[in-house]
């Protein structure tokens, strides 16, 4: 994609890009000769189409993370992936803790399990018990979980 200042017959370089967080995308271009600028405003569907290619307009500052497109877009399991360096040190759930977790509504089950697991990892806790769950709930303000 190139932008051309018709009056000057000069290519307008990309100046700035913005993603305001509402699904849209904006990119500004300025003519180096006459200083006129234009802004391209993409609607959510257009922005999504480019995003679905797994590319960033204007280029990437960081390399893509493994399976970035899928992980960032699929609606599915929250525990589908584990960071390998943490996998070996993953805390174990006791039967009592699993029993309490089972009472959590299905639709938030994965998310709640992840929260407790991450809490345990951050606190070097190797076994998640009901007491650890109480402790996490109190510290993290997770009443009802």
């Amino acid at each position: 994609m190139k932008f051309l200042c018709v009056d000057c017959d000069e290519q307008m370089p990309l100046e700035e890009r913005r993603e305001p967080g509402d699904g849209t995308f904006a990119a500004s271009f300025r003519c180096p000769r006459c200083d006129r600028s234009v802004v391209m405003l993409a609607n959510p569907a257009e922005t999504r189409l480019v995003g679905a290619l797994g590319v960033k307009i204007g280029g990437r500052e960081l390399d893509a993370a493994p399976m970035e497109l899928v992980r960032g877009n699929i609606v599915g399991r929250t525990d589908a992936f584990t960071e390998a360096e943490r996998r070996s040190g993953r805390p174990v759930w006791t039967a009592d803790a699993e029993g309490r977790l089972a009472r959590v509504p299905n639709f938030v089950h994965g998310m709640v399990k992840k929260i407790y697991t991450e809490y345990a990892v951050e606190h070097d806790i190797t076994e998640i018990t009901p007491e650890v769950m109480d402790q996490a709930r109190s510290e993290l303000g997770l009443e009802g979980m």
């Binding site: 994609m1 480019v50 797994g54 960033k56 204007g58 280029g59």
Partner: peptide
């Protein structure tokens, strides 16, 4: 082309 799309693909 500074969009970088072709090079990223």
């Amino acid at each position: 082309d500074r969009s970088g799309l072709a090079s990223q693909v």
